[in-house]
Design a protein around this nucleic acid. Structure first.
Lengths: 236, 236
DNA sequence: TCAGAAATTTGATCCAGCGCAAATTCTTGG
DNA sequence: CCAAGAATTTGCGCTGGATCAAATTTCTGA
C-alpha cells in the first residue's frame, strides 16, 4: 500500500489530491508510522463558507489542510469579520496547543470547499516528540504567522486603503496564485467583502480600487475571481 | 551564595531588583544550575530610548527583562514607528529562535532605563531541553503575543481612534500599573507620540482624547505620565 | 538661572473613505 | 428558462481624523 493509498483508505476517499507524507510535519516517516498516523486521523470535508471550528470552542483537535483554502479570523460584537490569515494546503491550523491555549482564538472558515485531517489535541505532545518534522513545521508555522500578523499591523496602522488592498492581493497571489493566459489568478472564490474583511475597509472601497485597476489593465476581476495582470503596477 | 547574589555577581551589579529564579523560565532549578545559567549570561543596561537590538539584526541572543519596560515594534520606510507589544520584567524577548527566524523582526527599545540578561541563541535548544520551565514559558510568551497581536489587528481594523487609545491605556494599566492615591499610574514614561505609535494615529488625536478625558476626571496626565482614575469610564 | 529642546495643547482646514441608496450583473435552484 | 438571491458598481453627502500652524508648558544641561 503506497502512501496516497493509505490516506485514501483512512478517509474512505479515493480522490485525495495530496500526499500527507510530502508535507513537512510528516516528512521522513516510515510506512508503518504513516499508517498509524492515518489510523488516528479524522477526515473533514467542509463546504465553502462553513467552519472547521469557531473562536471560543475548546481546542479538541489540530488540523492539516489537504485541499482548499481557509480564512481564519474573528467576528466582532457588531458582526464585523476580521480575517487575520489564510491557510493553504499542507499547512497546519487549529494549533492552539502550540501556544498554550485551551480554546481556539479564531474561526477557521473554508474559502473554497475544504478537505483536512485532524488529530486529537491529546496527541500533540507525542507528535512533537515522535515526528521529527512536526516540531520544525510548528516553528515555521508560528514564524510565518507572526511575521504575517506584524506586517498586517504595520499596514493597518500606517497605509492607506489602496495600499492595503494592493498588498493583500499580492500576498494572496503569492500564496494561492495560478498562472493563466493573461496573469496570475487567485485560486479560490474571493468577494469584495472578503477582501474588505482582510483589509479593514468596506466592500465599496475595494470595488472602487479594483474598478480603477481594471481600467488600467492591472487586474481583471469578475464575480468572486481576481486575476492579477501587472503585479508590479499595483500601488506601493 | 543565594540566588540574588549569584545574579549580582554575574553582572558585577549589587542592585539587581529581580531574582531570576522567580521567573517562570528558570523556576525549580538547583543552585548549581542557576550558577551555570548566570555564568553564561550577559548583563545589559540600556538607557531610555536606546535599543537592545534592531529589526533585521542577526538574532544572536535571546533575552529576559529584569527591570524596566520595552517597546517592541517596527519602523516604516517613511519613519513611522509602529509599536506591536510591550515587555515587562520577567518576560523573554528577542526570541526569534522560538519561531525559526534568523534575525529579529522588530526593534526592542527601552521605554524606561532597562536591565536585561541575554544568552547566545546557540544555547536555545539546550535551554529548551534542560530547563523544564523554559519550554513552558516560551509557549506562554508566544501565546500572549499572538493573542495580543490578534486583538490589535481587530482593533485597528474595526475600532475608532478613541476606542483604540482607550484600549491601549487600559492594557498598559493592567501590564504596568502602579496604584497611587487617585488612580493607577502607568509605571513608565509615555508620551502622546508613544501612544499614537501604538494605536496607529497621531499625537494630536491622542492629546485631544486625553484632554477630553481629563476634563471628565477619567484620567490625569502630565508630561510623560498617565494616571487612570476611572478605568470603567473609558469608552467601549 | 537661563536658553534651548522636548512635549503638549488647541485651533483651523481639508479630504480619504465610510455610510447610504439604487441600479445592474451574475449565478443557481427549481 | 425564469425568479430570486448574491455580488458588484457607482454616485453623493458627510464626518472622523489627518495635516498644518502656532502658542504654551515642562524639562534639562550648561
Amino acid at each position: 500500500m503506497n502512501r496516497i493509498q493509505s490516506i485514501a483508505a483512512a478517509g474512505e476517499d479515493g480522490l485525495l489530491s495530496a500526499d500527507v507524507s510530502a508535507f513537512l510535519p510528516f516528512a521522513d516517516l516510515s510506512d508503518a508510522q504513516l499508517e498509524e498516523l492515518m489510523r488516528l486521523a479524522t477526515v473533514h470535508h467542509v463546504d465553502r463558507n462553513k467552519t472547521f471550528f469557531d473562536e471560543g470552542d475548546a481546542a479538541e483537535n489540530f488540523y492539516i489542510l489537504l485541499d482548499g483554502y481557509l480564512r481564519v479570523g474573528r467576528t466582532t460584537q457588531d458582526g464585523d469579520q476580521v480575517v487575520m490569515l489564510h491557510v493553504v494546503p499542507g499547512q497546519m491550523f487549529g494549533i492552539a496547543k502550540a501556544y498554550d491555549s485551551e480554546s481556539y482564538t479564531m474561526t477557521a472558515r473554508a474559502a473554497s470547499d475544504g478537505l483536512a485531517l485532524s488529530w486529537p489535541s491529546a496527541l500533540w505532545d507525542q507528535f512533537m516528540q515522535d515526528y521529527p518534522g512536526f516540531k520544525e513545521a510548528t516553528r515555521k508555522a508560528l514564524g510565518s504567522r507572526i511575521t504575517d500578523m506584524q506586517d498586517k499591523i504595520v499596514s493597518l496602522a500606517t497605509a492607506q486603503v489602496e495600499q492595503r488592498v494592493a498588498h493583500t492581493i499580492l500576498r494572496l497571489m503569492k500564496q494561492a496564485g495560478k498562472p493563466t493566459e493573461d496573469g496570475v489568478e487567485i485560486d479560490f472564490p474571493l468577494t469584495r467583502q472578503d477582501i474588505s474583511d482582510m483589509t479593514g475597509t468596506t466592500l465599496h472601497s475595494v470595488s472602487r480600487c479594483l474598478s480603477k485597476w481594471q481600467k488600467r489593465g492591472i487586474v481583471r476581476s469578475r464575480r468572486r475571481r481576481v486575476v492579477v495582470c501587472q503585479p508590479q503596477a499595483l500601488p506601493a
